[in-house]
Design a protein around this nucleic acid. Sequence first.
DNA 1: TTGTAAGCGTTATCAC
DNA 2: GTGATAACGCTTACAA
Lengths: 328, 328
Amino acid sequence: MNINEIAKLAGVSRATVSRYFNDGYVSEEKRRQIRRVIEETGYKPSAQAQMLRTKKTRQIGVIIPKINSESISRMVAGISAALKEAGFLLLLADTENREKEELDYLKLFSENQVDGIILIGTILTTEHRRALKGLTVPAVILGQRLEGYSCVYQDDYRAALEAARCLLSGAKRPGCIGVTQRDLAVGKARRRGFLEAVRRAGLEWDEGAYSESGFGAEDGYRAAERLFSRKPDLDAVFCATDTIALGALSWIQESGRRVPEDVAVVGVGDTVSGRIMRPALTSVHLYYKTSGQEAARLLLELMEGSDSAREVKMGFRLEVRRSTRSEG
Amino acid sequence: MNINEIAKLAGVSRATVSRYFNDGYVSEEKRRQIRRVIEETGYKPSAQAQMLRTKKTRQIGVIIPKINSESISRMVAGISAALKEAGFLLLLADTENREKEELDYLKLFSENQVDGIILIGTILTTEHRRALKGLTVPAVILGQRLEGYSCVYQDDYRAALEAARCLLSGAKRPGCIGVTQRDLAVGKARRRGFLEAVRRAGLEWDEGAYSESGFGAEDGYRAAERLFSRKPDLDAVFCATDTIALGALSWIQESGRRVPEDVAVVGVGDTVSGRIMRPALTSVHLYYKTSGQEAARLLLELMEGSDSAREVKMGFRLEVRRSTRSEG
DNA sequence: TTGTAAGCGTTATCAC
DNA sequence: GTGATAACGCTTACAA
């Protein structure tokens, strides 16, 4: 079934059938004839032919570092919902944390296939900047702020500051488990937020009380172990993510310490597992899903020609639970 | 940049350039000229034109009920890895648990856009069967067994049986939290496995000790509450998934019961949060990611014409941890 | 309001 | 081995 056959059956030219689907410059009479034929045949225009002809694919490329992470899958859920609403399809590229693949996909998508790109970023190098600059389609960065590009990101600094403020009430010897400082959002900004809270609380800070971790719960577990082997008497631990906090919490409890009486713990992100954990984890809720929707909307705007690079900073909400001492 | 310009620059016909990329019937001399021009210009053939011409999109549609679920995102990770290796792109359709959308996407993908479909199923109705039957491209069902279709699924019955066997050693009054029986894999098969273990253990069974839950941890929490309000003296609870088990575990501990001394608990699926939970959750590891890869491979075979519907049943591995009494 | 005709950028067939 | 040439199925001037 192609447009020619439909045209023949409806007794019109194929241009009219095309108009029926597009501009709509068709008389009521022919419109009816065409509709009838379409219903009978179940005809759908070929997306490939449309793509070739119009240079629009109605597909968006979404590049992510890892799909099985709660924060990322929540963002993807938001992107997916917003794109579906707008009639776009989502081309998913999971780089499994390989920077090189991120660049490859950026190039692949740009050359072909998609009308726009959403990049969920962790570490953005100069290479990334160059690749982004060379893009022929609009792009939005999600999860990181990047000067000069449209991006949607969390208020990592203030979120961490609030979480840490809550953590530190009644604490004397704070510690911190963070991630690589090359990740400006989760690594650097959250650490800064924590340090600022320490300063405001008038507490001493010693770099020995900082431990760097990977993103997994197991990483958090080991980081806590390392941290306490150096500083056995910490009484509060800030963790850059909930997942890390969960691992840390496990180790701390196993070491015989009580949470929050001996050691208070907070995370950032408010993941499901943190809510189930006992004691339930005090955390900062980040609107990951909404940020995904926001990124998609921003991209759609960009694709319609609004060429000004815009930034959206998301809000947050402190969730005080049982892993900290006070009411925040 | 299109094939015509490349042909002109290389001093050959566009047919030769096309052959350069495809069959390869090109003399070494022209091959060199073409390669040079391609490198200089960075030319890439238009995917859209290729799609239109060849009727192949090199894109696979993946339909999932929900992206932010650990089991599903692990499957998607596997699919993604296998497809990338084979040079296919992944078109993601998240139905957010709406059956209707599942059918819509099945239709959309079939009419257009993709060379094959992977459907991560939960509930498969007669409508699904009809939609699958009407497909014009090969499809693989992941996570459910469906007679007459290629599918990759977990050994839910035996996995549940093993988990339950471990749970029941030393138990007298078992309970069960399951999901809707319309989900043949997670609902029905796992429940059957549990019941068989009860039978083999020579224990009494009373339907009052069964409670039905949604898929979330909060659902498991409430299901446990309902279950124990009816049967306060249960000493072992089987949960259809780890997520449910985590919720149940929380409620049980909060109710003042000790795990596993007063009540033993098992889940199925071996999710990260179950490993971190204290006590760590005894569970059955299911190879979700591998099953995703397997589904993708099966689909690729199908697309190459191997038209026999094949079934792959995945293995499992019992993970005995601290939420149960014995060594399994 | 409608139809004709010219592409979009490829690949496939067929002669040479 | 290579080059014309005809599709693939659609959209869009332009003419009527």
